[in-house]
Simulated scan of single mutants.
Amino acid sequence: MLAEAGVVLEDIMERLGHTEDDTTRNTYRHVTEKMKKETSQKFAQLMKGL
């Protein structure tokens, strides 16, 4: 939920007590449907600006 809310990985790691970013990424930061949609929209906007 923190990743989806836009919280940076380092802050999530600190909150969970992780020292390795792979631990956080592999365990908790799976891509949500909302994040997939937002990424797609950002890419579309980028392409329009070319």
Rank of each mutant, 00 (worst) to 15 (best):
L50Q: 11
K34A: 15
G6Y: 02
M1K: 14
L16H: 00
R15G: 13
G17A: 11
A5D: 05
K34S: 15
T24A: 07
M47I: 09
G49T: 08
I12K: 00
M13C: 13
Q41H: 03
K48S: 07
E33A: 15
H18W: 00
Y28M: 13
G17H: 02
D21H: 02
T39H: 06
L46Q: 06
V8P: 05
K37F: 04
Q41S: 13
R29G: 04
M13H: 08
R25S: 15
K48P: 06
R29F: 15
D22L: 07
H18S: 02
K42F: 07
L46I: 01
V8W: 01
E38A: 11
R25L: 14
G17N: 04
A44V: 05
E14G: 12
I12A: 04
T39W: 01
H30G: 15
E38L: 03
D11P: 01
G6H: 06
M1E: 10
T39D: 09
M1G: 12
H30L: 12
A5L: 06
L16T: 07
E38F: 01
K37I: 08
V7C: 10
T24L: 05
E10D: 06
R29L: 15
V8D: 05
T32P: 05
M1Y: 07
G17M: 13
N26G: 12
V8Y: 00
H30Y: 10
E20N: 14
R15V: 08
Q45M: 10
T23F: 14
T19V: 02
T32C: 03
A3K: 02
Q41P: 02
M1N: 11
V7A: 03
T32Q: 07
H30W: 14
T32I: 11
D11L: 09
D11V: 14
L46A: 05
V31K: 00
V8R: 03
S40K: 01
K36G: 09
L2Q: 03
